[in-house]
């Protein structure tokens, strides 16, 4: 029975791929494509103004091509549910977008007339309206996918808690994080319904913090459970395991203090910076935790 429980835990620990991940990433890719389409339409409108007002504008075709290639890569990563590749490709398109903007600014200083700028200014509002409609459609799609995604995560988390609980691990810390996760789900609809990217990002930042904290609480729970068992065992690596467990426990407890959850995100960049510190420091702990497994087995 115990072996079955532990096998279930291993499966839960590895986690089935979240079916909603691709949906979330594809919705986000749709959102980014709204900006790419806007850029293409805006450049085309600007070129028309150049012809109309008899001023030259730079050839933007290579920049557009780069954006389109980047967008293809983003959609590929989304379809594969590959978060890492998705994130990298987003950085790529962000970089290429800034390059394009740089060229636009440079070109604007090159023999342009007031009439030309007026022409462009007049053409912008309808393009922006189209972009707004496009973004809202993408946000609506992402909202549904995000709810499914977090629901799936919470189901997995509860499964993991049940398995650990049945083994005898004290899981109250993990349960508390799941409760915060349930509150996050309640906030998804109102947050996404603002259609405000800053508000939507707040939800993602909270989500990231909760995922980290759940894993930190899981580590602490397992370390506390394992310590007396290792202590009473004849494992050849007992002393080293106990020393490393002590050091790791202290670090995890410090991380849990440092990264305490708040559902209030006042300044996104500040919360993001805290998340980065939590994850950077936490990654060492997560890897050490995984390494302890081999030390235990090796000393058996």
């Amino acid at each position: 029975m115990r072996l079955i429980l532990v096998m279930l835990l291993m499966i839960a620990g590895m986690s089935f791929a979240n079916d909603a991940l691709s949906d979330v990433l594809e919705a986000r890719a749709d959102y980014v494509s709204c900006d790419v389409d806007y850029a293409k339409d805006w450049l085309s409108m600007r070129e028309s103004c150049g012809v109309e007002e008899n001023v030259s504008v730079f050839d933007s075709s290579s920049y557009v091509e780069d954006l389109e290639d980047d967008l293809d890569d983003i959609y590929d990563a989304a379809k594969d549910g590959n978060r890492f590749s998705f994130g990298l490709n987003i950085l790529e398109i962000a970089g290429d977008s800034l390059k394009l903007i740089g060229e636009v600014v440079k070109d604007a200083l090159d023999h342009k007339t007031f009439a030309f700028f007026s022409c462009v200014r007049e053409g912008e509002p309808s393009l922006k309206d189209d972009r707004t409609d496009c973004r809202e459609d993408a946000i609506d799609k992402e909202k549904t996918a995000a709810e499914d995604y977090v629901e799936f995560e919470l189901d997995e988390a509860n499964e993991e808690i049940a398995i650990l609980d049945a083994t005898g691990v004290e899981t109250s810390g993990m349960e508390e994080i799941v409760e915060y996760g349930e509150e996050l789900i309640e906030d998804i609809d109102p947050g996404y319904s603002t259609y405000d990217p800053q508000e939507i990002q707040k939800l993602h930042l909270r989500h990231s913090r909760l995922v980290f904290l759940f894993r930190a609480e899981q580590m602490l729970a397992v370390l506390n459970y394992a310590e007396p068992i290792i202590e009473a065992s004849n494992n050849d690596n007992k002393e080293e395991i106990l020393d490393r467990e002590d050091a790791l426990r202290e670090d995890v407890e410090d991380l849990l203090d440092m990264c305490e959850y708040s559902d209030e995100v006042e300044v996104n960049s500040d919360y993001a910076k805290e998340n980065l510190e939590c994850w950077e420091d936490g990654m060492d702990a997560l890897e050490e935790f995984n390494d302890l497994r081999w030390l235990i087995l090796e000393g058996a």
Binding site: M10, V120, V211, V222, M283
Partner: peptide
């Protein structure tokens, strides 16, 4: 028993995304 214990020390290390793509810039009027 040792294997059962060791198998508790398995944890995911992947970090979730945090809203990437929401702030990709578009060209605007100079």
């Amino acid at each position: 028993e040792t294997e059962d214990l060791a198998d508790l020390f398995v944890i995911d290390t992947d970090k979730p995304l945090e809203g990437e793509g929401l702030d990709v810039k578009s060209p605007e009027q100079e």
